[in-house]
Design a protein around this nucleic acid. Structure first.
Lengths: 211, 211
DNA sequence: GAAAATGTTGCGCTGAATGCAAAAATGCAA
DNA sequence: TTGCATTTTTGCATTCAGCGCAACATTTTC
């Protein structure tokens, strides 16, 4: 009824309709959210615009918030794949920079990045947004650790590296919002990372030569 | 009705009762949350146990979640104060290490740190928990920047430093959960920070000598 | 003590989310 | 095509969070 079950056979009309309906709900919801705000939009508004029953909404999304963040899992998975694809002999910082840059640039035109305003203006979404970063960080750490042969000693190192990089991603996303759309994402990413590594070296140096 | 208004006079019975009631609600809620879980506890359960009306609950807390996180603002403010108290000529990394260590150690015996399990087991609280760190990070960055005379050029640097340190705090809190209660918080904090600065230097170096 | 301010409660309402079972659509035979 | 199993969609009833409002209670102030 609600779960997708693959019975091996290549599927036809049923799945197609389901995807269409899902897309209709998603589009209707996004349009309304951006138009009149998240809280001011009721589930009924959405289902009416998408022409499905109110009950059916929950057959496609577990909650109102999930519509906004539906794309997130795919992004995290792509990032993990990008990390895994880097050569094993490469240093962690090089691998993570390359993987993040590639994944972000590939996703820069997708919907979901234009949502910054909406999320920022809605407390409930803000919390959910932070959780997204936390999950991303966890997956990134996992992927980085796997590259190192799952060495338990590397675990805290990779956790911290992931925290640093995702932190930079967060700050970077914020800076990106308030940039003219003229700058290319490539240059922007390169600059952000260059600054980041420079700061790391400086902070590390500062700590070393401390009284 | 719901807001506290100081009319300058030294307060008497009213405020005392209000604080008592607030504490009763908080205690009842926490007891029930830890006993049967967050979602399984209704507002009515809490108000019944605290012997107030259901409506009054919202006169003290804006939502069920806020009961759990009520202590957080105080912590953030104390951290800011600790940062502001450091001498201005001190390096940012030294200041932040000292301030965080002092503030965390002072708070280690307070309620709110035993909640890790509950939060970890409740999705809705997990999101809220991450938001707490985000707010902490923002305030920390603000405090650090103020120390630097609000120099706009230092802003991204301090944002990133705050992100790194709060990231370490997050990882540290996680590691602390799964530690024997034998280790002293002082040593633990010192060790965490030592590792952190070392990693920063290493990552910075790694990035510098890159192909 | 009376009047003003503040605190508490009951009541009713909206909206999110869930369970359940009936109805509709689809896929698959023969 | 028809009949049957499976999946999807829907309606309905229910629980619970949260808010607005107005009546009622208590405390403060004069």
């Amino acid at each position: 009824m609600a779960e997708k079950k693959r019975t091996e056979t290549t599927e036809g009309r049923r799945e197609r309709k389901r995807r269409q309906t899902r897309a209709r709900i998603e589009n209707a919801a996004m349009t309304l959210f951006l138009q009149r705000g998240f809280e001011a939009t009721t589930i009924e508004d959405i289902t009416e615009a998408a022409d499905v029953s109110k009950r059916s909404f929950f057959d496609y999304f577990p909650s109102k918030e999930e519509v906004v963040f539906a794309w997130q899992d795919a992004f995290a998975d792509r990032l993990m794949a990008a990390i895994a694809a880097r050569p094993t002999d490469e240093s962690s910082v090089t691998a993570v920079e390359a993987a993040i840059t590639a994944t972000v640039i590939a996703a820069v035109d997708e919907p979901g990045l234009a949502l910054g305003d909406l999320i920022h203006r809605t407390p409930a979404l803000k919390a959910r947004d932070q959780l997204k970063y936390a999950k991303l960080e966890q997956k990134l750490a996992e992927a980085l650790l796997l590259r190192k042969g799952d060495d338990p000693l590397e675990r805290p190192r990779m956790r911290v590296l992931a925290a640093i990089v995702i932190g930079a991603l967060r700050v970077g996303a914020e800076l990106w919002q308030q940039r003219p759309p003229s700058a290319s994402p490539q240059d922007f990413a390169r600059e952000i990372f260059a600054d980041l590594w420079k700061m790391l070296a400086e902070f590390g140096e500062e700590a070393k030569t401390r009284r």
